[in-house]
Nucleic acid binder design. Structure first.
Length: 286
DNA sequence: CGGGACTCCTGAGGGC
DNA sequence: TGCCCTCAGGAGTCCC
């Protein structure tokens, strides 16, 4: 499930391969995504050069030399992979179910010597071409909160944002306008590190807990990026490698198991809130 | 305005 | 083997 660390890893692997390279061809393989791929729009990227790739929240922004930007969101299952020219087949060392995956290819950008393919099983992702002058005002980016790893995501900021809220701290941290880039997994993990229950209401958080939450979020994200992200079911980076941070999960997907905190023997409980699973230790997260 | 429910989609995994 | 059901959860939209 791509959250900030997985999108950051994707950005790094894409940058290595396509930065400063010219798009030789654009092929729409299946236009059906969250927003239908616009053929006219995308075909105009032919012969353009990629100048810069940045990540904002869970979005990738691919800048071209003609003042256009490809805004990409990976949704739940979106990913990029490379195919070397002359090689007709996938590298099956990391795709075990080759045909099923290939069925969900959506867009191909051809470069000299290789293709870059966007693949998305569940079609929750999207790719849109946007004029760079309009990028800050697109509905996707305009209401995003601060980057969790930036200094703007501070105690003062977060306290002010949640001090009057009747929402749970879990929902607040998942809300992209409060802080952008977190998803279910890393919110669960950060709340565990903070010893705060996901059910606690924003307005009842103590200052010390708010401070702990900020530190925990930054720590968890940094460690996850260092580990190459987390691989759940089918996330791979664009080089086909899998992340390893899932081995460090303390609560996510550990329902019924024993808490890993030293000296705590609590059980991990799973609760559904707002349609999403919360995992937390009933003993040390209060 | 806030917040919850619903929606898009496909595959994995469990029960029988 | 296979059918049916539930679950995964990002983010936009709708409604109270």
């Amino acid at each position: 499930m791509p959250e900030l660390p997985e999108v950051e890893i994707t950005k790094i692997s894409l940058s290595k391969q396509i930065l400063h390279k010219k798009v030789k061809n654009v092929t729409i393989l299946n236009p059906k995504l969250r927003y239908r791929l616009n053929k006219q729009n995308l075909l105009s990227l032919k012969n353009k050069i990629i100048k810069k790739i940045i990540r904002r929240s869970k979005y990738l922004l691919i800048y071209f030399n003609d003042s256009n930007i490809l805004l990409v969101h990976l949704g739940m299952t979106g990913r990029f992979y490379f195919v070397k020219k002359g090689k007709n087949k996938f590298d099956t060392s990391f795709y075990t179910k080759n045909e099923i995956i290939k069925k969900h290819d959506h867009l191909k950008l051809s470069f000299k010597g290789f293709d870059l393919v966007y693949n998305d099983i569940r079609k929750f992702g999207f790719i849109k071409k946007i004029l760079s002058i309009n990028i800050e005002s697109t509905k996707h980016l305009i209401s995003l909160g601060p980057e969790p790893l930036s200094s703007n995501f501070s105690f003062k900021y977060l306290k002010n944002k949640i001090r009057n809220s009747n929402s749970s701290v879990k929902n607040l941290l998942m809300n992209q306008s409060v802080v952008s880039g977190l998803g279910n997994i890393y919110v669960n993990e950060a709340l565990f590190r903070s010893c705060v229950s996901p059910q606690r209401l924003g307005k009842f958080l103590k200052d010390m807990e708010t401070r702990k939450i900020i530190i925990a979020i930054k720590k968890v994200l940094k460690m996850a990026i260092k580990a190459g992200g987390s691989t759940i079911q089918n996330y791979h980076n664009s080089e086909g490698k899998i992340g390893s941070y899932q081995a460090n999960f303390k609560v996510y997907d550990r329902e019924g198991e024993i808490c890993k905190r030293a000296g705590c023997s609590g059980k991990i409980r799973r609760l559904i809130a707002s349609g999403r699973s919360s995992f937390f230790c009933i003993k040390c997260q209060t």
